[in-house]
Design a protein around this nucleic acid. Structure first.
Lengths: 134, 134
DNA sequence: ATGTATGCAAAACATTTGCACCTGG
DNA sequence: CCAGGTGCAAATGTTTTGCATACAT
């Protein structure tokens, strides 16, 4: 939460972007989503700044960038336990989950092939209950 | 392998693109990779056609499109058992693997949250042996 | 023939960068 | 004050699309 602790000046745009990502009802937003939310909130921010700041936040470990299908990256505040994602192809809803058996197996696999894990991305695509009946 | 069976006319560009993806030493290529390979082979093909054809192949289930980190999609011939990927962040090398324990757990997780799996993507990023010592 | 596929060039996106101006500490 | 941050516009890189021509059946 503390920008200074992350080595970043506490400027207005950075604070606002962090706030926006912290809004309980969103969790996963694209750069454009953040930008639009700020404009609607009456903030005068540039899209380029949103991209720059999100990239800095990622480097500082404040947010996680996801490359789900669809061509645009989405960002999420890195303020809770590690988890993976279920993405509904119908409504776009995102469900987080954690499975330690899968996590452990990933480490085993990396070992087996001589890789040192730096990161991993597990995304399950499917249709959620609400979308099943169209 | 059979374009007609997939409902696609057996045109020269399509045959060449399929051949290129089938070259044993590649497996994972971006649209541009395929395009360049064809130009070098003396084929007169357009980049737009490569994109169009790869998208058709994906829809027909002949190839799989991956959105790894890095902004560009890579394609792989869908001619073997399902598998996931280890991607070396150092040299870009891609190692395929399969783990049935992980697969089974994914199904369980989807069930638990009421999702019907249509697809999934597990990518482990890390550094391979060869890159470990820089 | 004839409907579909292709190549080219232009368009559409997502994201990045150059630069003059503004701001936080 | 002054290094670093920001907004804007222009540049980039990837993928898509419109259209006249070429090709497979």
């Amino acid at each position: 939460m503390d920008l200074r602790k992350a080595g970043l000046k506490a400027t207005l745009p950075r604070l606002r972007i962090l706030e926006t990502l912290g809004m309980a009802n969103v969790r996963h937003m694209s750069a454009e989503d953040v930008y639009k939310a700020l404009l609607e909130a009456g903030e005068d921010v540039g899209l380029a700044t949103v991209y720059r700041v999100l990239t800095q936040f990622e480097a500082a470990g404040l947010v996680i960038r996801h490359n789900f299908e669809g061509g645009r990256a989405v960002f999420e505040l890195d303020d809770r336990e590690h988890h993976d994602h279920l993405v509904c192809t119908g409504c776009g809803r995102i469900q987080e989950f954690h499975d330690s058996v899968i996590e452990n197996h990933q480490t085993e696999i990396a070992d087996k092939y001589g890789f040192t894990i730096t990161d991993h991305a597990l995304v399950i695509y499917g249709e959620c209950d609400d979308c099943a009946g169209r």
